Simulated scan of single mutants.
Amino acid sequence: MHALVTGSAGFVGHALSRRLLAEGHRVTGFDGLSDYYDVDLKRARHRDLAQHERFAAVEARLETPGAVREVMEAGQPDIVFHLAAQAGVRYSLINPASYVDANLVGFANVLEAVRAHPVRHLMVASTSSAYGGDASVPFRETDRSVSPLTLYAASKLAGEAMAHSYAHLFSVPTTAFRFFTVYGPWGRPDMALFLFTRKILAGEPIEVFGEGAAERDFTYIDDLVDAIVRLADCVPPLPSQGGPVSDGDTLSKVAPYRLVNIGGGRPVRLDAMIEALEDALGRKAQRILKPLPPGDVIRTHASTELLESLVGQVPETSLETGIAAFVEWYRNYYPDA
């Protein structure tokens, strides 16, 4: 198949593109290479993908009028994996306009492009942050999500609603999937694992928010990509052509649309993650304990029942194995660290 992957120079987009190329598919990568974090790392990801002759990169921003539509018209992809977004919970307190541009205006452009050039399946990345401040644990896709704590979470929640409306109005088969704390090789420099690794190797103290008691449902990148690829084959049917696969299915009653968690369902305390990182690095961290910053939640915990009913398995890589793989990549990529 021919896949369009937006955000192909990002952490998840790069890993997904590698997987699709390895399976023999053709991939067009679309990325604006924003300077939210190290652009050199993003370019390195694209260079890695460019080793495959079936990969083509387009450098453009989602919010540029007509940019996505031109790529869709030229390539006529079979499936769209929409991963591009302005990410980051805390950064949304500093630069809210970037979230409106990329996550709302940019995504509207993607939806219009898919409307003009229909695809077999539109896959839309969302976030566990969409559950907000009043979710019970584990987070279930059927929970009512109406209290986002940051503009980032609000923009992704709005994206889910926008996608549902297009699925209903224009019969666009759509699956939105909520990530839970993704980590692994080629990861994001703004995430805790990357930050902690850099500081521990430099002999600098690390800031531990939530005083180490916060819990996260860590999801290893390869497990996440495997789930996305498997979900791509689970095309939501039109309301008249199929029903829910289980009691907890989120299949819409009025549109070919479904929302799915992708996480392991095994929350880990932040201090336990740090201990695993210390073991992998062979060094101890100097910790500065701090309270949770605005917008952060004390715990994330994915319900995996729907994911398992759809694809037969859930992320299972242990935190220790995943952190060791990240540390190996980090030391190879930054040999002077």
Rank of each mutant, 00 (worst) to 15 (best):
G264Q: 06
V268H: 11
V297K: 00
M273P: 02
A272V: 12
D279M: 14
P294V: 01
R287D: 08
G264P: 00
I288V: 15
R287A: 10
M273A: 15
R283G: 08
R266G: 00
I274V: 15
P293M: 11
Q286F: 01
L277I: 04
D271Y: 11
D279A: 15
K284C: 03
L277D: 10
D296L: 03
R269D: 10
Q286V: 12
G265L: 04
E275T: 10
G265K: 03
D279P: 00
L281R: 11
D296Y: 06
T300W: 07
G264L: 01
D296C: 00
A280T: 05
A285N: 04
M273F: 10
L281H: 07
P293S: 09
L277T: 06
T300N: 02
I288S: 13
P291F: 04
R266F: 02
E278F: 09
A276S: 14
K284A: 11
D271S: 11
D271G: 04
L270E: 07
R283F: 03
T300G: 09
R269C: 08
L289G: 09
I288T: 14
G295K: 08
L277S: 08
P293N: 08
L289C: 05
G264A: 09
G265V: 06
R283K: 14
I298Q: 08
A285E: 12
R269N: 01
V268R: 01
A272R: 10
R266Q: 06
A272T: 12
R299A: 13
E275K: 04
L277Y: 14
L292C: 09
T300P: 04
G265P: 06
I274R: 05
I274N: 03
A276W: 02
V268D: 10
L281F: 11
G295N: 11
R266S: 03
R269G: 06
T300I: 02
P294K: 07
E275P: 00
D271H: 14
E278D: 07
R269M: 11
M273E: 12
A285M: 09
Q286T: 15
A280S: 14
D296W: 02
R299G: 01
K284P: 02
P293A: 13
P291W: 04
A272K: 07
M273W: 08
L292F: 07
V297E: 03
L281Q: 10
P267H: 10
R269I: 03
I298L: 13
R269V: 05
V268E: 13
R287V: 12
D271M: 15
R299E: 15
K284F: 03
L292A: 10
R287T: 12
I298C: 01
A272C: 04
R287F: 03
L289P: 08
A285F: 11
L270D: 02
L281V: 04
V297D: 01
I274E: 09
T300Y: 09
R266P: 00
L277N: 03
R269Y: 08
A276L: 04
P267M: 11
P291Q: 06
K290F: 00
V297T: 07
G265N: 05
E278T: 00
T300A: 09
D271N: 12
G265W: 08
T300K: 02
D271P: 02
V268Y: 01
D296R: 00
G265C: 02
L277E: 05
L289Y: 15
R266I: 05
D271L: 14
A272Y: 04
